[in-house]
Amino acid sequence: MSIAIEKEKCVGCGRCAEVCPGNLLVLRDGKAGIREVKDCWGCTACVKECPRQAIFYYLAADLGGAGGRLYAQDSPDTLTWIMKWPQGTEDIITVNKNKSNEY
């Protein structure tokens, strides 16, 4: 499990580095990078913070991962989660921020 950064999408705004609870993200040559993939907690704070959807979360092989990528798009009222699958399809789940969990 960890996150990965798609460098071509990154605009170097530094927002991800600011919010990581473990100080794991750093800007180098204007692009974000992770110090050590094994240190990521998977909290997805950076994934939600990135304005360009340049960061995705994934499950590694040791957690039963199969290549899916989880992106998020934040807006004032909704949080949209985009799951992209290796075969090119995707699933989208939108969560209403003003509505409580059912469970």
Binding site: M1, K38, D39, W41, A60
Partner: peptide, 9 residues
């Protein structure tokens, strides 16, 4: 998971 996912805790 002490390896790659050591921080999936």
């Amino acid at each position: 998971h002490p390896g790659h996912s050591r921080h999936q805790m």
